[in-house]
């Protein structure tokens, strides 16, 4: 049963990821990316990782995609104005870079060998309750200090964005 769902969502995510690259209209590409994010979120749920799934939908499909669409609309990119490059050159460059990446990955995977997990797999690890308990016990300090990080980023965004009245 789970395997069927896995294959359904895997197919959706691969197809929509392909559509991101293949569509020439940026809005279609963006929508394809949203679909990919949702399909991956579904995979996380199949892995019993509720929190990661929720974050995936909220942060990626929500915030980041809205940002993408804003940029597309503000810069008026929704018309097809991407300059077309010679197909042969494009094909060669795609094949070379993709092939080299694949080669590096293959070599790394071969020499790295199999990894025996340091801890036994625990299927309750992705539940929100487990995560919350870890976050507020063991990882309390990083959690609190990251508030400093966000404050710094927010102050910086305002500082660089605002107009100086002088």
């Amino acid at each position: 049963m789970l395997a069927i769902f896995f294959y359904i969502f895997a197919t959706i995510s691969v197809l929509s990821a392909l559509s991101v690259v293949l569509f020439r209209n940026p809005v279609y590409s963006a929508l394809g990316l949203v679909t990919t994010f949702f399909a991956i979120a579904a995979q996380y749920i199949l892995l019993n990782a509720q929190f990661v799934a929720a974050v995936q939908v909220m942060v990626y499909a929500g915030a980041i995609m809205v940002l993408f669409l804003f940029v597309i609309m503000l810069l008026n990119l929704n018309v097809n104005n991407e300059p077309s490059r010679p197909a042969l050159l494009q094909g060669i460059s795609v094949a070379t870079s993709g092939g080299m990446l694949f080669l590096v990955l293959l070599a790394a995977a071969r020499s790295a060998g199999s990894l025996s997990p340091a801890r036994a797999a625990d299927n309750s690890i992705g539940l929100i309750q487990t995560l919350g308990q870890t976050l507020f016990n063991q990882y309390l300090m990083p959690f609190e200090v990251s508030s400093l990080l966000f404050l710094s980023a927010m102050v910086g965004a305002v500082m660089l964005g605002k107009k100086e009245y002088k």
């Binding site: 710094s152 102050v155 910086g156 305002v158 500082m159 605002k162 100086e164 002088k166």
Partner: peptide
């Protein structure tokens, strides 16, 4: 010319 307080904070 820059925002002094925020620069100190950063």
């Amino acid at each position: 010319e820059t925002s002094e307080s925020e620069s100190y904070a950063q």
